[in-house]
Design a protein around this nucleic acid. Structure first.
Lengths: 218, 218
DNA sequence: AGATAAATTTAGATGAGTCTAAAAAAATGA
DNA sequence: TCATTTTTTTAGACTCATCTAAATTTATCT
């Protein structure tokens, strides 16, 4: 079996490869796992020995099929537990990420599948991320950050790129959450901040940084 | 915070002190944690430094108030998760112990209390063990092993002393489970095996070893 | 291309938790 | 009681995951 730590490396490599493309750098893994590059190198050798990653010195890494399968299984667990925490235990969406970081390492595959059934096979977690099925299959809906929309575009908020509680609490505070319909009415030339019309007729202004981290379907 | 490993030692010491009385021996802890006595001694020093146990060389150990509080919190989590697994995810009572051994180490106290509420504050887990409330309080019902009953006594099965899947599966097989009413009709002189009448009018015979591990209220 | 900067790897050390083997203390029993 | 057995502790070593500091490789820039 793979240790808690090995699982976290695989998960980080997976997430980074989705964002940064096929191969992932040692430094980016160090940043994601809150460790130092030297520690990452040690672990990469170990994961390569186990044939969970493709690794050539100085060349970055990518997951093998087996490694990817394990990573996706962890992501599945993480998102199902998040859904459970919000839907059944009434946690708020900004409270569940840390908890799911622990729960995702519970080993039993049987448990995950039963949890999935109990929750009635949800397709998306509370942050709008797709939940892989028990074969690891899922489709990422075609989403764009608000920062990439043109003026007058209408969209529905489907997810976020940033899961930090501070960010999610900020969204709560300005009145944005998953499912909201928004229309982009203006992009400021000066700072690229964005003005949105909500369908409760309120108008709000968000910074480019915030706009980059909110994903919509159009 | 305390590590996964430290928590398991505290839990083991707690369980052993319930069975064996106030102070617990190094060897019994080694057996309970599947380690060697030398490893236990090392850990006892560490737990004593943290003031979680009272420890004097060669004299056995007992939990401090703090240590006991932590141990009971772990027991509470273990039993709540077992209840969840059986009641909500439809696991069988012999399947949940191992899973709960992992789940009991999830740290959040908030999570446990919300789980408790979600489950509607259950008083007993699937094996009949009492679930401590969020102040660590619980009452152990007055239970006797069947092996301690006299002939003709009627009782209701309330719990088991042994949680190994093999034992629980054996009970399933011979038709005994929690809530069953039984009447002890005979104790064999030869091997102390016991004959029981169930309230479906079936009669079964169980060995003394099995009788010692089934707890009834009379 | 050559110099400098950045990224990565190696070398050697640390702490947690475990082990075996040997020493020390406590319990047992003739 | 005192010799023997059992229990417990000490001593020293190992693995895992981490670190810092130094060396090496790759990338970048003029």
């Amino acid at each position: 079996m793979n240790s808690f730590t090995e699982e976290n490396y695989l998960k980080s490599i997976y997430h980074l490869s989705v964002i940064d493309g096929e191969t992932v750098s040692t430094n980016s893994i160090a940043a994601a796992t809150h460790t130092k590059a030297a520690s990452v190198t040690d672990m990469l050798k170990k994961l390569a020995d186990k044939k969970l990653i493709h690794y050539a010195k100085y060349q970055g890494v990518s997951l093998t099929d087996t490694g990817k399968q394990i990573a996706i299984a962890i992501v599945r667990k993480h998102r199902l537990w998040e859904f459970f925490l919000v839907e059944k235990l009434n946690f708020k969406w900004d409270e569940v990420h840390e908890l799911a970081e622990e729960l995702e390492h519970i080993t039993s595959a049987e448990l995950v599948d039963r949890l999935d059934k109990f929750l009635d096979y949800p397709k998306y977690d509370p942050h709008g991320d797709p939940i892989p099925d028990n074969n690891g299959r899922f489709k990422q809906a075609e989403l764009k950050p608000i920062s990439a929309l043109e003026v007058n575009t209408v969209g529905i908020i489907m997810g976020v790129r940033e899961h930090a509680p501070a960010f999610l609490q900020h969204l709560e505070k300005i009145g944005l959450t998953i499912g909201n319909q928004i229309q982009l009415t203006e992009i400021a030339d000066y700072d690229h901040s964005v003005t949105l019309n909500l369908n409760n007729n309120k108008t709000i202004n968000i910074s480019r940084d915030v706009a980059k981290n909110i994903l919509v379907s159009i």
